[in-house]
């Protein structure tokens, strides 16, 4: 997962349809061993303020000698925090032991649409031991409806001794809905500030101004913006 931050996966559509965009943290961060403090990785999500969250996925690549030590949380700009991993394998009904999953490495995408729970993805002699598409411990749906823009925090802690590691990559894939396309300021009503924001974005050829979604910036975008502005928002 070598990506530049942020990467826009799909062209922004100036309609109410969903946007999926990916944003990554600056990584190669060492995780303090045997500490609940962990390492916090900020991810700046630079989207329009009027985009609300439809779904979130977190892709993590962690080099670690004992994944059962790891706790991973994700915090949204609104302050909602969910636990992605919590010392996988603990508590267990005997397997894999009191120290949790003893394998090495995480290279997985956590999303509600996956089918296998991350907490029990533990097969000895498999590397990385937590891999593929996995269901996080707590559902990502907790973020649905919140505004996506702002600083997200991925926190990774290593809460047992003798093994350590680093976070190689942490990327968020956020799918958003535009609540009201002409409400470019996200204030919840339409006024001259939105017109001003449109003109500024149009002049800078920002995707948010591509109201006639053709990757061109011309009178069609102006016309579409004015038409939707005139129609108002629900």
């Amino acid at each position: 997962m070598n990506r530049i931050t942020p990467i826009i996966l799909l062209a922004t559509l100036a309609t109410s349809s969903a946007h999926a965009q990916e944003f990554c943290a600056l990584t190669n961060e060492f995780i303090p061993d045997d500490s609940t403090i962990g390492v916090s990785l900020p991810i700046s999500v630079d989207v329009s303020p009027n985009e609300s969250i439809a779904s979130v996925e977190l892709a993590l690549n962690i080099a670690h000698g004992w994944v059962g030590d790891l706790v991973v949380t994700l915090e949204s700009p609104d302050g909602t925090t969910i636990t992605i991993l919590d010392r996988p394998g603990i508590p267990s009904s005997g397997f894999p032991g009191p120290f949790g999953c003893g394998g090495q490495g995480v290279d997985a995408t956590f999303s509600d649409s996956a089918s296998s729970p991350a907490e029990t993805a533990c097969t000895p002699n498999q590397f990385p031991i937590i891999a593929g598409d996995l269901v996080p411990l707590m559902p990502m749906s907790a973020f649905i409806g919140e505004h996506a823009a702002g600083q997200w925090i991925v926190k990774v802690s290593d809460e047992s001794s003798y093994d350590f590691g680093i976070v190689l990559d942490a990327c968020l894939s956020i799918t958003t809905n535009i609540d009201c396309a002409p409400d470019l300021t996200g204030e919840g009503d339409l006024n001259f500030l939105d017109v001003s924001a449109f003109l500024s974005a149009f002049a800078n050829q920002e995707p948010i101004a591509d109201f006639a979604p053709d990757n061109n910036f011309n009178f069609l975008d102006v016309s579409a913006f004015l038409e939707q502005f005139a129609s108002g928002c629900p």
């Binding site: 603990i90 005997g94 894999p96």
Partner: peptide, 26 residues
């Protein structure tokens, strides 16, 4: 300390007792 970490610590402390009762089998 997360709840699970607390449980893990308890498990470490009481492993002997746990091992007497539930054994993980292949």
């Amino acid at each position: 300390m997360p709840i699970k970490s607390t449980i893990a610590a308890l498990l470490v402390c009481t492993t002997s007792a746990i091992a007497q009762h539930q054994l993980p089998i292949k």
